[in-house]
């Protein structure tokens, strides 16, 4: 599933970041890469961005980028 479909405050594992995503580079540097666990903390209204929590920090990513991140729920 896509990160855009993720529910808030549940833990997911990143499966892949779609190629051709301009921002892939930056995401990786911020520690958002395949294998990492993330949570969606909040979603801004009106198709706004997502705030996600990683290992050691909170980052905000635009919705378009979130739609290019493939995740799987961690049970």
């Amino acid at each position: 599933m896509r990160l855009t479909e993720a529910e808030t405050n549940k833990t997911y594992r990143v499966v892949a970041i779609e190629g051709g995503c301009h921002a892939k580079d930056r995401l990786i540097k911020l520690g958002l890469l395949p294998g990492v666990e993330i949570q969606v903390k909040r979603k801004a209204p009106l198709r706004g961005p997502f705030m996600v929590t990683l290992n050691d920090s909170d980052i905000v990513i635009g919705r378009g980028i979130a739609s290019k991140i493939e995740v799987r729920p961690v049970v």
């Binding site: 930056r26 911020l30 961005p49 920090s57 909170d58 980052i59 905000v60 635009g62 980028i65």
Partner: peptide, 8 residues
């Protein structure tokens, strides 16, 4: 332009 990524 590519969307925003910013750390909080």
């Amino acid at each position: 332009s590519p969307e925003m990524i910013i750390d909080i």
